[in-house]
Amino acid sequence: MPNARGATVEFRDVTKQYADQVAVDGLSFTVPAGKICILVGPSGSGKTTSLKMVNRLIEPTSGAILIDGTDVLQEDPVQLRRRIGYVIQQVGLFPHQTIEENVGTVPRLLGWPKDRIRSRSIELLALVGLDPKRYAARYPAQLSGGERQRAGVARALAADPPVMLMDEPFGAVDPIVRDRLQAELLRIQRDQGTTVLFVTHDIDEAIRLGDRIAIMKDGKLVQYAPPGELLAHPANEFVAQFVGSDRGLKRLGLLTAGGADLDSGIERAGVDPRAPELKASTTLRDALALMLERGVQQAPVVDDNDGRYLGVLTLAKISKMLGSQA
């Protein structure tokens, strides 16, 4: 599929002032094209407000938001929104339309020919894991919560938007479905190269999905960094608390055995036979759990594809990586 390139989204000193409070206060950060930026923070910290200022459902009091260098305030809001995918927690599917009609909403607004809308809707339903044969003709009331959220994502993706705004899109589903939806979102996003701004309360979701994480508090940006850096160097006590006291472990979840500094001086045959064999793609967090479970100090690491022996991972190395400020 010809991929729509994502667009750069830049917040420039954006403030939203309500009569009795500041919802967003001097927000400045840039999401590079094709990256996922996760907004996290306590309730009322201004995440939703920030998101809605991008597609002008809310107008900023001051400052500017630029998409590929163009101030969104210069554009007609209706035209602007057709180029920005939008997913909310409540999904907001149209109950009187079939799933296929729902997914075709923006292409219809853009005046695509009927057969192109149809083939695009079918393609997208398949992409989000809803079998078109079963689901296309159904109405939203005939779907489960998780299926509705998939349909909502498909609808937002329909016209290949360069930017997607997602406000707690997977909030209402159980952990297993949530896990699958996250994996699907990552796959689709890599595939399409879409720039995504994603709001969540769940720091684990943020770490899993984010290329960058923006931590907000009282309408201000507290820290903006890739997940690894956030876990390694929380900017202050608030961030450290927010990411959790197990942030070391979380960081290990981002690193893989293959990426670790392996000891290749030891022969495969010389490794403790009780040790679990680790694939290079295993996260250090899982590796640590396995090694502790078996009560071993070291474990052999092999290539994912050909099973070639790469070297030995030791508890000491993991411990050193936890301590390192990389």
Binding site: Q90, L93, F94, V106, L165
Partner: peptide, 9 residues
């Protein structure tokens, strides 16, 4: 539903 509609343009 209305917000979703408006948000889609």
């Amino acid at each position: 539903v209305i917000e979703a509609a408006r948000g889609m343009g």
